[in-house]
Amino acid sequence: MSVPVRIYPERSRRGFVDQVEALSGQRLLACYQCGNCSAGCPMADHMELLPHQIIRLAQLGLGETLCGSRAIWACVSCLTCNGRCPKGVRIAEVIEAVREVVLRTNRRDDRLEVSALPAERLASLPPIALISAMRKLTS
């Protein structure tokens, strides 16, 4: 089976690439897919797309796949990948940019509904956990 790959992104794809590059402050094509970022990622077991694959899809402008993935919400910005990338790509910033693309639409596509959490869990959680979760997972 062959899969067609477009090397020149269409206009909408280019738009996604521009948006992610602007929000992250990174040049996506700096990544040469060595995989170092994924090798050390503590959340890799919980991602269906690994960090280097996220960068690859972003390079290709495949915004829909990325915005619909679980992996971008699994990443906790621990910055292990940033420190180990031989090309100095800040992967965590790229993933944050993709999350922002989702959270900045008017769909209020939040990944956490605090009021729906079991009361017992809510009572036991320290503010540092709740505030950071809301900062990362809600618009």
């Binding site: 503590p42 919980h46 906790v76 990944r111 956490l112 950071s132 979760a133 990362k136």
Partner: peptide
């Protein structure tokens, strides 16, 4: 220096 999973404890304590 390995990350503990941070705020994922709120939405996904299994992690």
């Amino acid at each position: 220096t390995e990350c503990c999973g941070a705020y994922q404890v709120v939405a996904d304590p299994g992690i």
